[in-house]
């Protein structure tokens, strides 16, 4: 398949599925009662899915699979997690995580 065509097919299908997911209970199933078990499972979707997304980005360094290279990232991610837990603030979390990473990387380079 031509690369541009494939990309636009992805945009169309993923865009539609994303929109239908967003619309689902607001409009499509708005008159249906949500089964209790499903409602319960929904609560854990963000924690489960986002953790699965985040962990490989933190533990596996970009371009390589060496965990040792990623050590500053793990420490910076934990620092950011503590700030997020306490403040619920995206900007503060971002600032804490990035500054921690820069400091740790600088320290690592300095130590050699």
């Amino acid at each position: 398949m031509d690369a541009t065509l494939k990309l636009w097919t992805v945009i169309a299908i993923v865009g539609t599925l994303n929109y239908l997911s967003r619309l689902s209970f607001i409009a499509i199933f708005s008159r249906r009662h949500i089964p209790a078990l499903l409602a319960r499972a929904f609560r854990y979707v963000p924690a489960a899915m986002l953790t699965a997304l985040v962990l490989p980005m933190v533990v596996v360094a970009p371009g390589g699979g060496e965990t040792a290279v990623a050590a500053p990232r793990i420490a910076a991610a934990i620092a950011a997690g503590v700030v997020a837990f306490r403040t619920h603030d995206t900007l503060k979390t971002l600032a804490a995580g990035m500054v921690a990473l820069w400091l740790l990387q600088a320290a690592k380079a300095w130590i050699g």
Binding site: R43, P46, L50, L53, V54, R73, G81, T93, G97, M98
Partner: peptide, 23 residues
């Protein structure tokens, strides 16, 4: 290391949920 901002955005969403044991 701008790419690190991506996991940080998600950490900002996940960490506050860790008040509930099942999460």
């Amino acid at each position: 290391s701008l790419d690190f901002a991506v996991p940080l955005c998600f950490i900002a969403l996940i960490a506050p949920q860790f008040r509930a044991m099942p999460s």
